[in-house]
Design a protein around this nucleic acid. Structure first.
Length: 436
RNA sequence: GUGGAUGUAGCUCAGUUGGCAGAGCAUCGGGUUGUGGUCCCGAGGGCCGCGGGUUCAAGUCCCGUCAUCCACCCCA
């Protein structure tokens, strides 16, 4: 009987784990320098936490089970509801703004395909309790900061944003029937994914009314520079509403903040970004690879109602998630992953078998001093030991000749110098040790 | 849930009109008589995804099944 990893899951052999750690290290480093604190939550929650947010249908798309006490539970498919739950529970004692991040392992019961697995990791960055567009822009900055940290440039990826608030206001001003709005939104979401004719057909099917179809089509085609309330209303032939004015103002403030942060060239407006039918209420955005051959690298936006929906007070929130799968594929394809080899600071070698007595003690001294040190389990010729040192990625080889005499060889340059054991160990501690 | 492609060594693959299951890389061992990366020699490793059928004979042909990948639906 042999076993395989379950469909849609991955085994992280050391070689792959190095890549995962490389990405995680960058995520955490960037989060911290942007002023975010790390949190985590249980890997499973009450099923209701997710159905309350996304509806009953979501249950079929996640892994759920009943425990021995009869409780309906589910493995988390996202961490935002858990974040909202945690914040709600302490809402009166948390200093605002709340800037938290997490790198949870998530599971979704979907069919795997390129960039999409059943188990994955997603970096989440959220700001809770700040209504200003500055918070949305700051989240975007963090997102870009990480992409840049990982070696990507505006030529590799682009962040496209729009406003759910503006879209809602425009649809409302066009007198779109309430039950038509989801379909119209869904059609808009396809704008960048299907041919123009197909988009027109979908929009017509969704909206029904000729005037709404024309209005949405015009709105979708508008450039960011034209996104002023008066221009929109004139173009679409509709009366100005306070909602449209407020949404345009908000979008302009957001854009201005992006420019002041110096990340304007990474970002552009695109009415086709709507982020599904989720809980977003304001600015929304997605990051795609430049060629748009992959799924979204990251996505996020403002969700001002979620804490309230999950039983808390009305506290606003904004944030984004970035998955490890698509990001990993992108970094690999763009050749942005640095060489990630297992490394050892020093490989300790005995010049002859009698010198081995001094090897273990030396290894012990080095390790206690914070130097990663290894040695061969087999007693064999120097050549073999050096070969093993090389294979293990050692940077230095300490050749022990006796308890007092040693040679310190640099395996990168090939230089070797004879010295006393004490000198050699001191050298290594200085070069690689915690104190050095 | 739907459709397409692919399953041969750890990995990448070859395998002729059906005729003894192979290569490269990787791993392990040995050598180049005490200083690594190069080089040379050798070894281990396979129910050819699984089950049935045709045939004297199946990795090869036929049927089924499972798995993986890709795409659709969906995408928090």
């Amino acid at each position: 009987m042999s076993f395989k990893a379950v469909k849609g899951t991955r085994d992280f052999y050391p070689e792959i784990m190095r890549v995962r750690n490389y990405i995680f290290d960058a995520w955490r480093r960037v989060s911290l320098r942007n002023g975010f604190e790390e949190f985590d939550s249980p890997i499973f929650e009450y099923l209701e936490l997710f159905t309350a947010k996304s509806g009953q249908e979501i249950a079929s798309q996640l892994f759920n089970f009943t425990d021995r006490g009869g409780r309906s539970l589910a493995i988390r498919p996202e961490i935002t509801p858990s974040l909202a739950r945690m914040v709600n529970a302490k809402i009166n004692s948390l200093a605002r703004p709340i800037k938290w991040f997490s790198m949870p392992r998530l599971c979704r019961a979907e069919n795997p395909q390129k960039g999409r697995l059943r188990e994955f990791f997603q970096w989440n960055v959220d700001i809770i309790g700040e209504t200003s567009e500055l918070a949305d822009a700051e989240c975007v900055f963090v997102c870009i900061d990480a992409l840049r940290e990982l070696g990507l440039s505006p030529g590799d990826v682009a962040l496209r944003y729009s406003s759910r608030a503006l879209l809602s206001a425009v649809l409302k001003a066009l007198n779109t029937a309430e039950d038509r709005i989801p379909a119209v939104t869904a059609a808009l979401d396809k704008r960048n994914k299907v041919p123009p004719e197909a988009f027109d057909a979908m929009l017509k099917e969704a909206a029904g009314d000729e005037r709404i179809v024309a209005g949405v089509a015009k709105f979708a085609a508008m450039e960011e520079g034209c996104l002023e309330a008066s221009k929109i209303c004139q173009e679409l032939n509709i009366g100005q509403t306070p909602e449209i004015a407020a949404a345009c103002q908000s979008l302009a403030s957001f854009r201005a903040a992006l420019d002041r942060f110096g990340i304007g060239q990474w970002c552009r407006y695109d009415a086709g970004v709507v982020r599904g039918l989720a809980y977003y209420t304001g600015i929304v955005y997605e990051v795609f690879d430049a060629g748009q051959s992959l799924r979204a690298v990251a996505g996020g936006g403002r969700y001002d109602n979620l804490l309230e929906v999950l039983g808390g007070p009305k506290v606003t929130a904004t944030g984004f998630g970035m998955g490890d799968v698509v990001l990993g594929i992108l970094l690999e394809e763009k050749g942005k992953l640095p060489p990630l080899q297992a490394q050892v600071d020093c490989f300790v070698i005995d010049a002859e078998e009698s010198a081995f007595d001094a090897v273990l003690g030396t290894v012990s001294r080095l390790r206690q001093g914070g130097v990663s040190a290894e040695y061969s389990y087999k007693r064999q010729h120097i050549g073999k030991q050096l070969k093993e040192a090389n294979r293990r990625g050692a940077r230095k080889a300490l050749i022990v000749k006796s308890a007092q005499e040693a040679g310190l060889k640099d395996l990168v340059t090939g230089d070797q110098a004879d010295m006393s054991m004490d000198e050699a160990v001191a050298d290594l501690l200085r070069a690689f040790g915690v104190a050095g």
